[in-house]
Amino acid sequence: MNKNTGALLDVAGLQVLYPIRGGLFGRPVGHVRAVEDVSIRIDAGETFGLAGESGCGKTTVGMAILQMVRPTGGRVAFEGTDLTSLATGALRQIRRDMQIVFQDPYSSLNPRLTVGESVGEPLLVHGVARGHDLKRKVGDLMEIVGLQPSYASRYPHEFSGGQRQRIVIARALALRPKLIVCDEPVSALDVSVQSQILNLLNDLQQDFGLAYLFISHDLSVLKNVSDRVGVMYLGRLVELAETAALYERTLHPYTEALMSAIPLPDPVRQRARTQVILSGEIPSPSNPPTGCPFHTRCPIAQAVCREKLPALEEKRPGHLAACHLRD
């Protein structure tokens, strides 16, 4: 049997450890356990939302999928091919199918290149287009993301944050990828511009059948874009479900606290809510707590939570959670 399950992307048991170097000779003295045992499946045309607070490992998951960071464990299968065993050269072809868009549109564009050169770069590098054809393709891409093709001759500093993010998206689209990892693509933008970019990403998905891994710390943004959502804490997935199911009834106490911490944009309802305010801070991923990683901040933790790591189990159809106490 073919191992290809039909999923576009199948991440299984992903682990990424970053060495902590110390001492005189820079020897590894420990590890940041950035990602531990993360499994995610993304189908063609689907958006998988990845949530969690800063430092929980979201960016590392995104980069490990693209092999920009090499995983220390697990596999990343793209259309059935395990990327973790591919040599760097062999990844080139696969990289055409997968792109990444980062949070900061300021640092992700080369200030010395015109916008047109930036957008066209992947086409040139992969030998897809040159000369007139390249120019026309760049113009088309700019139009697709809602920018005037005549802007192609301008430089990034002439554009606002939202426009720059459109340029970055145009470049990501150039090779007609099947998957785009969007790492906090709207977090640095104002709400009004945020919604422009979210609408654009939703439109592009419709038009091109794109799949997204959409990374965000903002659960209200994820609700808008995602088909399914996974919530991470200290490098691990603690809950994963269809968007509607997750937002209707959270199972993990961490997801609950995260939802509850987001203020509703409605003063009457917001003030009528009972908020779960977590005490304490996120522990260090170089020295995670024993047992359930969330037990040090969990409002309902029991003895078992301090001792045993809860498995990510299917508690109801399609709804997974890693909690000893909830089902």
Partner: peptide, 24 residues
């Protein structure tokens, strides 16, 4: 009015089109 409307909300529907303020 537009500023208040353009926020993605926890109580929105999935992939609901968001209101925007054109321009910057």
């Amino acid at each position: 009015q537009l500023l208040l409307k353009s926020v993605p909300r926890l109580d929105d529907k999935k992939k609901q089109r968001l209101h925007v303020i054109d321009g910057v």
